[in-house]
Design a protein around this nucleic acid. Structure first.
Length: 596
RNA sequence: GGUCCCGUAGCUCAGUUGGAUAGAGCAACAGCCUUCUAAGCUGUGGGUCGCGCGUUCGAGUCGCGCCGGGAUCACCA
């Protein structure tokens, strides 16, 4: 890589000019800003103490030395303390011809010791997936792709919250008012059907509470006295006791939920290597709690409930086991962590979970540290921001939840309408057109969500449908399709450059050079995205690349270029760009249609 | 109230880890299809980077203090 050589040469030059002992890490090599002439920029201010000369003079001396040392540099310009290096066209062209056809460009060799387990999705079986889950799934899937490309063996796991009071609520409502309804009999998707009963429980429960309050009971007491809630708790207790009838209904209803989730996952394009069920892991959590009790890390209260006291660390006391012996969310997450470690011995366990659970994961990690678990330090909570609506958070009670299936369907329809309106739907036989609309619609959705820094909250306005122009997924897909069309034509005319074509003696137009510069940094973009666990870096990069290429495409002929060498060069540039766009989109889980 | 996160153009978001005159898209306006796909390209307008102090050659970026918004602090998950 050139930047390393540049850095080494700079180090060398500094020693020769000003003597040894300079801390090279103070110097940064940057891409030159676009309004300014140059390709790489060295900021020389940190050097001034050593050189004891003006910024301009220091930069000039260094520039002169580098020009002599590195043949790739054709000239340099100094502005204040900035040394702007200008590379020869030969440098860019040789990079292009050496890499345009390399499949492994931007893909790291596998680091087999650095196994990473990614947990994402983690649905509750009592309601269907919504927009928040979409962000979660897309992040998890994309990050798995990015880390894989960076050489980390990735294991994708899902943890289904299939037990707990929430599912008991749906079960109770179903037993009371379900009348044997099934997905088949109702024509509803399984997860939607479960959700219907969860909502029904909530409605009936609210009515009951309201009645109780009207009788003069306080809200807190009403929560305790509610018959529905008492019955739901009873179901949970029976479930943990293994009561056959309860377990059977639970299996039946969860099965419906899984069938529904499967459909949603398939359409979204996410998958898992292993699915954990809370119902399988919570017992291991209970064991850890017993262990903690024995080690004196945990305390049992008089009512038999078990707690951890984190007040000395600035947190609160946290419940780990209820007084009736049933487990809570934290209990099962402890057990899951243990099982996951036993299964894979990963060097990192990354949890893609919303930032509303920051406290939970802080506590989880502290408990495992207190238990001296070797894997405790490797736990990392990738805390992503909420997806908000213009009126604030999504509230299932207020019916503002954006359903995942509905949203995907809407994206499909919009993509279809748009394509037809543009008169581009012709030439695709039935099934192909559907595939295309799906690719574009989901491409728009995925890009829209992934281009935002995962840690930040983001806004989604259902009234303003997701754009297909400008900084969007379809824009990038379109760029790809257009290049593909060029390449096909070139291929038909047998004009594609051969494997080892060497081009020399050409000069580059600005937009050609800009595109090559973007292509060159792709490997760094991938590794940065992996370091920061941030797909937005890839998204913003591929947008920039597409934009630069479009500029080139608009103003410079490729197939119509008469000089065969130049034509080859521009075809190489096009092939390379298409390949990097496809790789980038793949890292984001977005399809690259060959035609659109 | 404690803890944590966020505040950049009318709106949605970037900002290469402290560098030059803070950038894109949308929306608005003006141009570009007899030439490789116009879901494209070019141009114009739009900013007290929430406010203040500090650190230094240099701060949207780091520190402190305010202001505003959000999350969380359940025998919910």
């Amino acid at each position: 890589m050139f930047e390393k050589r540049l850095l080494a040469a700079t180090d060398n030059a500094i020693s020769k000019l000003y003597g040894p002992g300079f801390d090279l890490s103070l110097l940064t090599i940057e891409r030159t800003k676009k309004e300014i002439e140059g390709d790489y920029t060295l900021v020389v201010f940190p050097l001034l103490k050593l050189s004891r000369k003006s910024p301009e003079q220091t930069a000039s001396e260094l520039g002169g030395m580098l020009l002599k040392e590195l043949s790739e540099i054709s000239s340099y310009k100094v502005i204040k303390g900035f040394l702007n290096l200008i590379m020869s066209d030969e440098f860019w062209i040789s990079f292009l011809s050496e890499n345009y056809n390399r499949d492994e460009f931007g893909v790291c060799p596998v680091l087999s010791e650095e196994k990473v387990v990614f947990e994402y999705s983690s649905p509750n079986t009592n309601k269907p997936l919504h927009l928040g889950h979409i962000r979660n799934n897309l992040l998890g899937h994309s990050l798995s792709q990015i880390l894989t490309a960076s050489g980390f063996p990735v294991i994708k796991v899902n943890l289904v919250n299939d037990r707990g009071i929430h599912i008991c609520k749906s079960m109770l409502a179903y037993m009371k008012w379900g009348e044997g309804e099934t997905p088949a009999s109702s024509g509803m998707k399984g997860d939607k059907l479960i959700g219907k009963y969860y909502v029904l429980f909530d409605k009936k429960y609210k009515e009951e509470i309201k009645d109780l309050i009207e009788k003069g009971i306080t809200e807190d007491e009403a929560g305790q006295l509610s018959h529905l809630m008492i019955e739901a708790r009873e179901i949970l207790r029976k479930w943990e006791d293994g009561d056959r009838e309860t377990v059977n209904l639970w299996k039946l209803m969860n099965g419906w939920a899984y069938e529904g989730f499967e459909v949603t996952y398939n359409r979204l394009g996410v998958e898992f290597d292993h699915i954990y069920y809370e119902s399988d892991t919570y017992l291991s959590g209970k064991e850890l709690v017993v262990e903690g009790l024995a080690k004196g890390v945990l305390r049992k209260h008089e009512d038999q409930s078990i707690w951890i006291d984190l007040t000395s660390e600035g947190l609160d006391e946290k419940l780990l086991l209820r007084s009736d012996g049933t487990s809570v969310y934290m209990t099962q997450d402890l057990g899951t962590a243990q099982i996951r470690y036993d299964d894979y011995h990963p060097s990192r366990m990354i949890y893609v979970v919303g930032n509303e659970q920051n406290y939970h994961f802080d506590v989880l990690k502290r408990i495992l540290l207190k238990l001296n678990k070797p894997y405790a330090p490797s736990i990392y909570h990738l805390s992503y921001g909420m997806v908000e609506l213009p009126e604030g958070r999504m509230k299932s009670r207020e019916g503002t939840v954006v359903d995942a299936d509905d949203l995907m369907e809407e994206m499909y329809t919009t993509a279809a309408d748009m394509t037809i309106k543009l008169g581009k739907a012709g030439g695709f036989p039935g099934k192909e057109a559907e595939k295309l609309f799906e690719a574009i619609g989901l491409g728009a959705l995925k890009y829209y969500i992934l281009k935002v820094d995962p840690r930040k909250n983001m806004l989604f306005d259902p009234k303003e449908s997701i754009d297909f122009n400008g900084n969007t997924g379809p824009f990038i897909q379109y760029t790809y399709a257009r290049i593909n069309s060029l390449i096909s034509k070139a291929s038909v005319m047998s004009q594609l450059p051969g494997k080892d074509t060497i081009l020399t003696g050409f000069s580059l137009m600005p937009s050609e050079k800009e595109t090559i510069k973007s292509l060159m940094i792709y490997p760094q973009v991938v590794s940065q995205a992996a370091d920061e666990l941030n797909p937005a870096i890839v998204a913003n990069y591929v947008y920039e690349l597409a934009k630069k290429y479009n500029q080139f495409y608009q103003e410079i002929p490729v197939l119509k270029e008469e000089n065969p060498g130049l034509r080859q060069l521009r075809l190489m540039l096009s092939v390379f760009t298409a390949s990097v766009i496809r790789k980038s989109l793949n890292l984001l889980g977005i399809e690259s249609p060959e035609r659109m």
